[in-house]
């Protein structure tokens, strides 16, 4: 299930002709996107272009006006509620601030999906929760802490641990490095990449962080004019679209590329 390491050509998410709108405000129009198994796909775009909306639409939190979304081979727009729940249990979502249930400890948070979707014994659920806490690099005493007692970075890690509870095939991350200091962000990037390599995950992440895009994303989907343009960092850099030029040739982008080159040499 979770053992393919290399990027194979299998499509795990296929979005076709997606149109989302709030009232008369059209966010996406005729948007197509394909995510392949085992890749890390970054989604970027200016403010208000609907990056998070796209993510929420794919995981079924927002109903599109029209279009088709296939998640792991199931049409999540047209299928029944129970089918959708089953498919979504094969995907994990990390919200921006972790979205941990505030009345539960971290370990209890991680056990929620296990209790809901499996018939594992409580003792095993606890062991798996501990394993995930270890895997996301949280200090061990975090298990019994409440979300309000954790720092922002730790809450994100805890949220990631909960997203990983059921060993999902796809991981959705909403701005995973926003609000983290550069060291924390870099560690988080490496964590995501490490988990992808170890568990054979497919990762879709909305991000603004050029360092993450550069360091871990295999392909980048750019939201432009209500649609998406997919390519590698190199492809986008040679694109003439004014927004792309500004984004990938700005001073921050140059700095990100520079550090990357430096680490590779060193």
């Amino acid at each position: 299930m979770a053992a393919e390491h290399q990027v194979s050509a299998q499509t795990v998410i296929r979005v076709e002709g997606l149109r989302t709108q709030f009232g008369s405000n059209v966010i996406h129009d005729g948007l197509d996107l394909e995510v392949l198994s085992g890749e890390i796909m970054g989604i970027v775009g200016g403010s208000g272009t609907g990056k998070s909306v796209l993510l929420r639409t794919i995981v079924g939190l927002i109903r599109p006006a029209s279009g088709r979304i296939d998640l792991l081979g199931t049409d999540v727009v047209g299928c029944s509620e129970s089918e959708r729940t089953r498919v979504l249990s094969r995907a994990g979502v990390l919200f921006q601030d972790g979205a941990l249930f505030s009345s539960m400890t971290v370990a209890q948070n991680i056990m929620v999906p296990l209790a809901e979707h499996t018939d594992l014994a409580p003792a095993l659920r606890e062991e798996i929760a501990e394993l995930k806490i270890n895997m996301v690099g949280l200090p061990l005493d975090a298990a019994n802490k409440f979300p309000s007692e954790l720092s922002g970075g730790m809450r994100k890690r805890a949220g990631l641990a909960r997203a990983l509870a059921l060993d999902p095939e796809i991981l959705f991350l909403d701005e995973p490095t926003a609000g983290l200091d550069p060291i924390g962000a870099d560690r988080f990037d490496r964590l995501v990449k490490g988990l992808r390599d170890a568990l054979g995950l497919t990762v879709v992440m909305v991000t603004h962080d050029l360092d993450s895009l550069n360091a871990i994303c295999d392909r980048i989907a750019v939201l432009l004019d209500k649609r998406i343009r997919v390519g590698t960092m190199q492809d986008h850099m040679h694109d003439d679209h004014p927004w792309l030029r500004e984004y990938f040739h700005g001073p921050r982008a140059r700095a990100a590329r520079h550090t990357d080159a430096a680490t590779e040499m060193g």
């Binding site: 979770a2 053992a3 390491h5 501990e130 270890n134 061990l140 005493d141 019994n144 170890a198």
Partner: peptide, 23 residues
């Protein structure tokens, strides 16, 4: 052990520290 599972097993091995029990 199937070589495809090696990475997974390695990951789990590296992360088997026990969390302290709640008070």
């Amino acid at each position: 052990v199937n070589p495809r599972f090696a990475g997974l097993i390695e990951t789990v091995r590296a992360n088997d520290d026990q969390c302290p029990d709640p008070e």
